[in-house]
């Protein structure tokens, strides 16, 4: 039996329409007008025990709305959800006991209190036996480096410290299902890496089913074997990450800032010049044929580089290409349930 089963899930929001100015406000009082917006449109998927699935899409695609329905906070307009055999909205409290949630843009911790106070209360709420709680706290103090943060009020923490604390709060009761909504948003590379490693180790070793939404394809690449891409409320791809990586992930862009004007460059195979500007050059390279360090090394031998940056493939661009049939020959149909890799 799947841990999460979603069938024809739909959510329609009624958005009030207001004309500008005082007249519009008064008119709105007597004759309110609403526009229907379908945020999630008849989507289907299943997640098995232990799967870590990336749920991605551009802003407004319907990712967070789906997560909020899966957690039981929002009631679907249509379709059905079963999480561990329960209807999350109707059985909200029972469902809440089995899940852990991180919303990257808001905190579940008590803002004014030391982290340890929040964790104590959360452990009590989820009925974590005291001995097990102590064990988990020791473990998280190591893996998430929380030791020095336990007595710090959440409002005094940096973004990275807060996110590590959020993860501890979401996982301290060892939930069976974990929803991570943009857990690495706004974090620097080192913290991102640490959080990815933690998620991989913690959720993987305990067989947790994880649904991860993110705009960072690096998160997906490192954590997920399966990805679901959603756009305008509809699933446009459900299948192995490998297909996406092969099709869209083989190119990277690398931009160099130089100290002087850029001469014509001799580039390694698989690397091409995208643009040059005043003291700036952008290259694109095929990761199968060459590596970032080879490209950087080749360029640095020819010019003096002040700084350089690597960029991931753009998600919006990938979605656009899928619409244009980029995957038609890839053998993967949208929403193809049997395309899922084994957990």
């Amino acid at each position: 039996m799947s841990v999460i089963e979603v069938e024809n899930l739909t959510k329609v929001f009624k958005i009030p329409q207001k004309d500008p100015g005082l007249g519009g406000a008064i008119k709105g009082l007597f004759a309110p007008r609403f526009q229907s917006k379908t945020a999630v449109d008849r989507i289907n998927f299943r997640l098995d025990r232990g799967e870590i699935v990336g749920y991605i899409g551009v802003n407004g695609a319907g990712k967070s709305t789906t997560i909020k329905m899966l957690t039981g906070v929002l009631m679907p307009t249509g379709g059905s959800i079963r999480v561990l055999g329960r209807d999350p909205h109707r059985q909200r409290i029972d469902n809440a006991r089995e899940i852990g949630v991180v919303f990257g843009q808001r905190t579940q911790l008590w803002w004014d209190l030391a982290l340890i106070e929040s964790l104590n209360l959360i452990a009590r709420m989820y009925d974590v036996p005291p001995a097990r709680y102590k064990q988990m706290l020791d473990e998280f103090s190591q893996t998430l480096d929380l030791g020095s943060l336990l007595k710090v009020p959440v409002r005094n923490m940096s973004l990275g410290q807060k996110m590590r604390s959020e993860l501890a709060a979401a996982l301290i009761h060892e939930p069976k299902v974990v929803y991570l909504d943009e857990p690495t948003i706004g974090l620097d590379l080192i913290v991102k890496e640490r959080i990815r490693d933690f998620i991989k180790a913690e959720c993987g070793s305990k067989g947790m089913t994880v649904m991860l939404t993110t705009h960072d394809l690096g998160d997906i690449e490192q954590l997920c074997r399966r990805v679901i891409i959603i756009d305008e409320g509809r699933v446009i791809y459900d299948g192995p990450i490998e297909t996406i990586k092969k099709k869209f992930g083989k190119f990277r862009e690398i931009t160099f800032e130089t100290t002087g004007l850029v001469p014509s460059l001799s580039l390694p195979p698989g690397c091409e010049l995208l643009s040059t500007g005043d003291r700036k050059v952008t290259l694109r390279f095929d990761r199968i044929q060459t590596t970032a360090s080879q490209v950087a090394s080749a360029v640095m031998k020819q010019i003096e580089v002040r700084d350089f940056s690597l960029s991931e493939p753009d998600l919006a661009n990938i979605v656009k290409q899928i619409y244009n049939g980029a995957l038609d020959n890839g053998g993967v149909e949208p929403e193809a349930a049997d395309a899922r890799p084994a957990p």
């Binding site: 409290i93 808001r106 709420m125």
Partner: peptide, 14 residues
């Protein structure tokens, strides 16, 4: 308005 209601509704308690 701030969206924090979500965390209250996610607590396993009345």
């Amino acid at each position: 308005r701030e969206g924090n209601i979500i965390h209250f509704l996610l607590r396993p308690i009345n």
